[in-house]
């Protein structure tokens, strides 16, 4: 699986959400978008669900960051 990485740490709201949505528009089947974020993107999850994306989100304690992996449903 091809993996794209996106680091949105240090961006002010709503830039992280806008940047992630921009990337998703060009995300192909078989691709995965891995996002690194300082905060849990609560507003992103329902948007992903409505648009038919699958996501996994976990908090990485040592780096104190949220890691969100997004791919299209059914891939």
């Amino acid at each position: 699986m091809k993996i794209r990485k996106l680091d949105v740490r240090g961006l002010e709201a709503p830039e992280p959400l806008e940047k992630i949505l921009d990337q998703l528009d060009s995300l192909h089947s078989g691709e995965r978008l891995d996002v690194v974020h300082w905060r849990e993107p609560l507003l992103l999850y329902p948007v992903l669900e409505r648009r038919g994306y699958r996501y996994q989100s976990r908090y990485d304690e040592p780096t104190r960051t949220w890691l969100i992996s997004i791919s299209r449903v059914g891939v």
Binding site: R9, G10, L11, E12, A13, W38
Partner: peptide, 12 residues
């Protein structure tokens, strides 16, 4: 503060 001023989170 982290959301709008783009800082790291407050200490745990």
């Amino acid at each position: 503060i982290p959301m709008f001023l783009a800082t790291p989170p407050y200490p745990r």
